[in-house]
Computed example of a mutant assay.
Amino acid sequence: MIRRRKNKILGIEDDEGFWQEGEGRVEREVLRYFEEIFRAHTVCHSKKDTQSVDHRVMEEMNRQLTRAVTSEEVKRAVFEMPADKAPGPDCMTVFFFQSFWHCLF
């Protein structure tokens, strides 16, 4: 209860410098703020913009990075991970994949 009271936002300053109070006004201002910063802005890029940028990935590096991954590489990666971790949103731990590797792949 103390933490809830301490973390509660009682008021917030809007774009124009006015103080907004009350749950509804604070909520609207927070929503407006995040909608504004995450709104897609049209950006126009031309080849001229990137001509002065050095190429960091050479052709050979690009071939290595875009080649097909082998099942042996996947297996090595899975077995190097800590068994009690869940790498994806399905909450399946690495232990499951390590234990049933022979059935899955």
Score class of each variant (00 low, 15 high):
Ile12Thr: 09
Arg67Cys: 00
Phe18Gly: 08
Met61Leu: 05
Val57Ala: 03
Val74Thr: 09
Ser52Pro: 01
Glu80Thr: 03
Glu80Leu: 11
Met81Gln: 07
Leu65Ala: 06
Gly17Phe: 10
Phe95Ile: 02
Arg67Thr: 01
Arg63Glu: 06
Phe96His: 15
Arg56Lys: 15
Glu36Trp: 09
Ala77His: 03
His41Ser: 07
Leu31Lys: 10
Ile12Phe: 05
Val69Ala: 00
Phe105Thr: 13
Met92His: 14
Arg39His: 09
Arg25Met: 09
Gly22Phe: 04
Thr42Glu: 08
Glu35Pro: 01
Glu60Ala: 12
Pro82Leu: 12
Glu59Asn: 05
Thr70Met: 06
Val30Asp: 02
Asn62Asp: 14
Arg28Cys: 00
Glu80Pro: 01
Arg56Glu: 10
Cys91Pro: 01
Glu80Ala: 15
Asp14Ile: 02
Leu65Tyr: 13
Pro82Gly: 08
Thr50Gly: 12
Met61Gly: 04
Glu21Ile: 11
Phe38Asp: 05
Thr70Pro: 03
Val57Tyr: 00
Lys47Trp: 03
His55Pro: 08
Arg25Cys: 05
Val30Thr: 00
Thr66Phe: 06
Lys75Arg: 13
Gly17Ser: 11
His41Met: 05
Leu10Pro: 02
Glu23Ser: 12
Phe95His: 04
Ala68Gly: 04
Glu13Ser: 05
Arg39Asp: 01
Phe96Tyr: 15
Trp101Asp: 07
Gln64Thr: 08
Cys91Met: 13
Val78Gly: 07
Val57Lys: 00
Gln64Cys: 07
Ile2Asn: 05
Arg5Asp: 06
Lys47Ala: 04
Phe100Asn: 10
Pro82Phe: 11
Thr93Leu: 15
Gly17Leu: 12
Arg3Phe: 10
Glu35Leu: 12
Leu104Phe: 14
Ala83Asp: 07
Val43Met: 03
Met58His: 08
Ala68Tyr: 10
Glu23Arg: 12
Pro89Val: 15
Glu29Phe: 02
Asp14Leu: 02
Lys8Thr: 14
Cys44Glu: 13
Glu72Thr: 06
Lys75Leu: 10
Phe38Trp: 11
Glu21His: 07
Asn62Ser: 09
Phe105Cys: 05
Asp15Tyr: 10
Thr93Cys: 09
Thr42Arg: 09
Gln64Pro: 01
Lys48Phe: 04
Met92Gln: 13
Glu36Ser: 12
Glu72Asp: 13
Val78Trp: 11
Phe97Leu: 15
Ala77Pro: 01
Glu35Phe: 12
Glu23Asp: 15
Arg4Val: 09
